[in-house]
Design a binder for these strands. Sequence first.
DNA 1: TGTAACACCTCTAGTAACTAGAGGTTCAAG
DNA 2: CTTGAACCTCTAGTTACTAGAGGTGTTACA
Lengths: 138, 138
Amino acid sequence: MYSIGELSRRTNVKVPTIRYYEQTGLMSVPERTHGNQRRYDNAGLERLTFIKHARELGFTIEAISSLIELQDNPDRSCEAATEIASAQLGDVRARIKKLRSLEKELARIARGCDGEGKSSDCYVLESLADHHHCQQAH
Amino acid sequence: MYSIGELSRRTNVKVPTIRYYEQTGLMSVPERTHGNQRRYDNAGLERLTFIKHARELGFTIEAISSLIELQDNPDRSCEAATEIASAQLGDVRARIKKLRSLEKELARIARGCDGEGKSSDCYVLESLADHHHCQQAH
DNA sequence: TGTAACACCTCTAGTAACTAGAGGTTCAAG
DNA sequence: CTTGAACCTCTAGTTACTAGAGGTGTTACA
């Protein structure tokens, strides 16, 4: 049996975050000591590890909740898990695409200014105020 | 002079968001009508446009506040604006790099499961529960 | 046994950038 | 004048945590 602090050290998930996961339903309510302290078994450790991996991959709490439900129901179709993972993959790809666009625009802005002038002639500030830019970005 | 609704329509920034920007100090407090409604001049329109562009590029409210201060002080050095823009560019690049890594891992997970099995044999769920994966990801 | 340090507890509220909704007033058109 | 749309302030919610206050429990040591 692990205390919450031991669980935190083993998984690198902070104590308040573990409590948060219990509050949001991702973690089952653990046993308590006579002194009201949480005690987790190996199933709890494995569950937290699962949650941590999924969070690292960017899955939302809601998506992780769905994945856990599938895990707890071994007869369920694997299709749902695939859909959740694929949706997340698509989301990541969309975010990459958007960030690449932002990178390009920011590089243009940052490159145009060598930092030597005054802010009254600043390319960065002018670019942000540029209505021509406004029309293109929409 | 523009009402807040007109400003919203011209800039595509929502009314509550404009109020939020006023609350956070990005937008100057505008004149009011006798009926207590906000009325913005062209300077207000330009300021909101500036804020919108910067938000679209991912600058935080704090960074935008700094940029606005530079804009309002034309004798200030352009260097600060360049640093803010370059920091944002670096941040965007770091996020792209991280997302690329996530994409790769998610693609591996999603590809390994054809969605035909049961969740008890699910590659997605097994990958998330995989302690070997855990060691690599840290 | 008493003490002290550390770990645990619940609860409230904050973070960032909005967003939603309640309950009210103002404005403009018919 | 009436009505509907737009405006107002205020409170609270969203997501995923995080911080801190005020208290209790646990363990090691004297």
